[in-house]
Write a protein that binds this DNA or RNA. Sequence first.
RNA 1: GCCGCCGUGGUGGAAUGGUAUACACAGAGGACUUAAAAUCCUUGCUCGUUUAGAGCGUGCUGGUUCGACUCCAGCCGGCGGCACCA
Length: 839
Amino acid sequence: MCTCWQIITFGTGLRYDGVVTFYDPKSIEQKWQKKWQEAGIYRVDLDKAKDPYYCLVMFPYPSGARLHVGHWFQYGPTDSFARFRKLQGKDVFFPMGFDAFGLPAENYAMKTGTPPAESTAQNVRNMMEQFARMGCMCDWQKSLNTSAPEYYRWTQWLFLQMFRHDLAYKKQALVNFCPKCQTVLANEQCQDGACERCGTEVEQKPLKQWFWKITHYAQRLLDGLDDLDWPEQTKLMQRHWIGRSEGAIIQFKISCHPESIEAQCDTTIEVFTTRPDTLFGATYLVLAPEHPLLDDITPKEYQGAVHAYKEEVRKKSEMERTELNKTKTGVPTGAYAINPATKEKIPIWIADYVIMNYGTGAVMAVPAHDERDFEFAKTYELPMQKVVQPVGAPLSAEQAGLPVRQGGNGGACTEEGTAINSDFLNGLSTPEAKKRIVAWLEDEEIGRQQINYRLRDWLVSRQRYWGAPIPVVYDPEGNPHPIPDEHLPWLLPTDVEFKPTGESPLTDSKEFIERTEKIFGEGWRPEFDTMDTFVCSSFYYLRFLMENDGKNFVDKKREKKWMPVDMYIGGPEHSCMHLLYARFVMMALKDAGVVSHEEPFQKLFHQGLITKDGAKMSKSKGNVVDPDPLVETYGSDAFRMYMMFMGPYSDGGDFSDTGIKGVERFLQRVWKLVEAHQQVRGAKDSKEVQIKLHATVKKVTEDLEVLHFNTAISALMELLNVLEKQEGVTADTLKICTILLAPLAPHFAEELWEKLGEEPFVFQQKWPTFHPKFLVADQFTIVVQVNGRVRATVEVDAGASKEDILTQAKNHPHVQKWLNGTQSKKEIYVPEKLVNFVV
RNA sequence: GCCGCCGUGGUGGAAUGGUAUACACAGAGGACUUAAAAUCCUUGCUCGUUUAGAGCGUGCUGGUUCGACUCCAGCCGGCGGCACCA
């Protein structure tokens, strides 16, 4: 620590000559990290805690590189928030673990030959050390690692739960396959038809894969959102992802082709529509090219063309299919259906704009009232029939005609209105018409009301090595059997090549097959696929409560006491993946009687993204900012505080270190203030100090409550600016400042606390409270406006009456000048704030 | 295309409908110093020699209001999500 003789000047206030020290982060930070650890002040007794507060931050992937600015941004402010809650007297549980399964470790293994288990363990150790240097208050005794057998036995146990409750099934399906990662991907992991990880275009491949029935929970996942304290944007994204739509299923009978045999005439095609009220306007049907009834209904002479089209579509990638959405393509099947309402014979087409995965894979086309159908009908000159008159639009000659005649842009009227040309629906409003037609369909037994969801089942199989093996074995006939609990953890074999081939790497393992045969019998084979890493992270918040307990998945009492998580912090990129999966798993566990809560995360906060020169930081772009030199120079406290001061935590922003000096100066000034004022005896707090102090306590408390770190820090800076001007302040004031600062600059505050002659630790103190009586000043500054423009300010005593204030304002020379002797028409008076004369 | 969010000094950013630019950074000027660093003071723009003061200023155009960064309508620009979901 540097000691110098110098004169300190504080603004216009106290001058003090004496020996001073400078705040030196290096020695201080290490000192307190050690003391915190020795005293174990962040340990929480999960069973005895009286006022539990579960603060959780999305756990990191254990990377081999050092912590980057993004890590600091995610974990520094979060730690400050946890500390704030602790100071408020909560029994804060703030655990940290590692989401350790996944591709990077596997790729690293391929490059270096180091087994993933080894490199991961090393990385975890490195990262824990670095988090300690950051000054995080995590309780490392309760850490976890999803790739450890004692963890993944529960990942496997969860799979078996799903299996037992009929929520896991295996089926052959067209799945998203990333040719670079050589594995399948869940729908949520494809973005614009590309792999979410590597950006490679995904292929559609028919494969037999394990799915979890998240669709079974679609409605509950939707309903549950209403009561969650989550960002509205995130709830909206989940609602959209689940994609509920109300409509009807309608059956269309096939019209017999002259050459068709009798059986084919009985075929019916079901369509899903959200506008059953437009049934009278359905002029043709369109099936998805993959529709199973296609071969049954297509007459011989059309089969060539249909097959050619199907082939063409199959070759198109997902990207091409969606990118070329300008002109729609399709071919007629040659078959016809009967519109059950009009009894008219309407053609059946196939087109790739109809998706097999949604609804029934077939639509009734109403070109007059649907954009896509309209476009398609225009291209292929199919008939249109207008059946809805939009509300408020008088029937003009032009509008009365068919939309197709208007040519050019659009033409389909998708708005609701009044039914026309629709027999018994005529004159009904769209909602009424919907009800009426559904009732009619049900009477006729050719349709029913139906709710559809966009959400699809969760594909959990992965053809990769570094994941939890799926706990299933197959008998010699190929039937799947769950592995009994006593064989868990079903260990990941080590005698394998890591190279991905599209085949599961576990197929290589001799040990794996021998183990299976030894336990289950000759000819039995293990499941070679591993689980999606999102499975591992779908329940980790429960496992934190169990300290590597090998007997129970979760303790019911603890779960009841600590769940749901009180504050969950993480990036918005998980809105439709992790956050949806975790909710689904929690619901399934509740139904299985394992947990008592339905929702895992009561409150959610998204921190922003830190970029460099406008781009997301990544190794490949080479724009990753290394925080170490800055931490070395300014200390962890100053660096963390700077990141919080940069802007709103929810915004993130472009990183630059201009400005860290400001935070460093602030800390130095606080340090000096404490040193100098300790020398002043018998100091008293002025009224100004009292007001400012209490206002600051209020502001900092309210801001930290909602993670507005930037404004909390500026409030403390304002307070410092006031304190520096004083001839002296009391030790009590300095102590309150130190506690207010503690969550934001933890090591620094501990040192100040000690400097103030107090016993450690500042984190065992009570958060200060403010008293409204101290927030009221003796005098107010009243702004005086004339016609809304500020012309003067006047100082008035707190007790002054409205009349007094108005008179005082009116008599101000500047105001006089503007009033110019005229009587004001109106006088606005806002107590304690402003007066406005309207002339 | 649809849904949602956001546009404020040279920069990061503050502002329950009530003094726009708090708090910082940078630059400029000044004080201290033999000098430098550190520290402290001043600093939105235009006019006014300085002061007093006046005018202009929150993407653009209007509206509501005594008063609008804030509310409403329309546009322009940026970001995020979804994208043939019938």
